[in-house]
Simulated assay, not measured.
Amino acid sequence: MKAAVITGYGSPDRLEVRDVPRPQPAKNEVRVQIHTSTVNRTDTATLRAHPFFMRAITGLFRPKMQSLGMDFAGVIDALGADVSSFQVGDRVFGMSSERFGAHAEFLCIPADEAIVHIPKGIPFEQAVAGEGAWYAHGTTKLLAEGQRCLIYGASGAIGTAAVQLAKANGAYVVAVVGTRHTSLAKALGADRVVNYEREDFTAIGETFDLVFDAVGKTSRGACRPLMKTDAIYCATDMGPYWSNMLLGIWFGLTGSKRVRIPFPEDAPEFIQYLADLMAHGKYRGVFDRTYPLEEITSAFQYVETEQKTGIVSVEILGQQGQTDSPHP
């Protein structure tokens, strides 16, 4: 099979599309013939080993995994001997959050991990919406119905997911985006859209229970005018001089937990929750560009520009086999 193999840490030039052996499922695994995957911030950060301490998990001198890629959508083509929850031919999507490997034509994953049937009527290329939503859910799950949140950077994969997930929780949502994304934020359900290119988003005259920086471009200090006394500030990056991490540790030690870098949890439960939202029309992925597997280096380079809108997908098998599975 063909796979985008990482030859070491560094730039996207460390990726090579090669022929590698097709994996065989263990007793508790299914094998998915992948139609579509994505390239996201997790992939680019892992390739760059950023921040450096992540090497303790991914490999000190070179990556442990052969291929990157967390999101996948495709068709099950083989079952392990102990698997009864899926059938060959099922259309599925999910996340290989532990081993990656979705930048390839085939992927093996345990049947009890983050893999579910694709809801009826959703094509493969629209089902690969898990990674950004998973990270967004780490924050939006903190919101109760009727609470107020502001999402800064509501146009990326995490931000577009956060708007929809917060609305699904019944929250009031203000989305902060640039000029070209205002219509998108409104279409996703934001109650108010603030164009940061035309006004100071910290001086809009509202306060919030939760402020979420979905792109890692601001700070708790800058957002203080927006925050209620007991508000939570969440960010997807370390912040200037690692301030978000240091504040998160401090507030954690004091017991208040009012500054957080949200770490996603329980991928299997989340991916089922996401599938349910998609099935009921309450969630949709927002997609920017699609690259063929052979051009995956260009996909990584584009993601690293930080100019993408929503998700960048990778077409691996193409548009064959788009008919619905008997298991919606």
Score class of each variant (00 low, 15 high):
P268G: 02
K257Q: 13
F287V: 11
S219W: 03
V174F: 03
E269M: 08
A231M: 13
L226T: 09
M238L: 14
D213S: 10
V215G: 08
G239A: 07
D237F: 01
A203I: 06
A275Q: 10
F212I: 00
E197M: 09
L277C: 11
T236Q: 13
Y273C: 07
T254E: 06
G248K: 06
A279S: 13
L277S: 09
F287H: 14
I261R: 01
S219T: 13
K282T: 08
V259R: 09
K257H: 15
A214M: 13
I261E: 02
Q272P: 03
G216K: 07
A275C: 09
A235G: 14
T182L: 03
F208P: 12
F251N: 10
T179L: 01
G216Q: 10
A231E: 14
N195Y: 11
Y283H: 14
S243W: 01
R198E: 15
R180K: 08
E199R: 04
S256T: 15
K217S: 15
E206F: 09
P262E: 12
F212N: 00
Y241H: 12
P264G: 13
F208L: 12
W250Y: 09
A222M: 10
G170K: 03
K257A: 06
F212E: 01
A171W: 02
T254N: 07
L188D: 02
G281I: 07
T179M: 00
A190C: 05
E265I: 14
V194S: 09
L246R: 09
R192K: 13
V173A: 00
D276V: 08
A235R: 03
T182G: 01
R192G: 04
A187N: 04
A235P: 10
G239N: 09
D230P: 04
M227Q: 09
R198M: 11
L210D: 07
R192F: 05
G178H: 01
G248M: 09
V177P: 01
D213T: 07
D237I: 01
N244R: 04
L246Y: 06
D237E: 14
R258D: 12
D266T: 11
L184C: 05
E197W: 03
S219L: 10
W242E: 12
H280S: 15
L184T: 05
F263Y: 12
G221F: 06
I249H: 00
L277P: 11
P268R: 02
T179P: 05
A187K: 00
K282G: 13
F270H: 07
A203T: 14
F251I: 00
A168M: 04
S256P: 04
V194F: 11
V259M: 12
D200E: 15
A187G: 00
R224A: 15
T179V: 03
V215F: 08
K186N: 03
E265R: 15
A267H: 12
K186H: 07
T218Y: 08
K186V: 02
A190D: 07
G239H: 04
N195C: 11
V177E: 00
I204W: 09
P225M: 08
P240V: 08
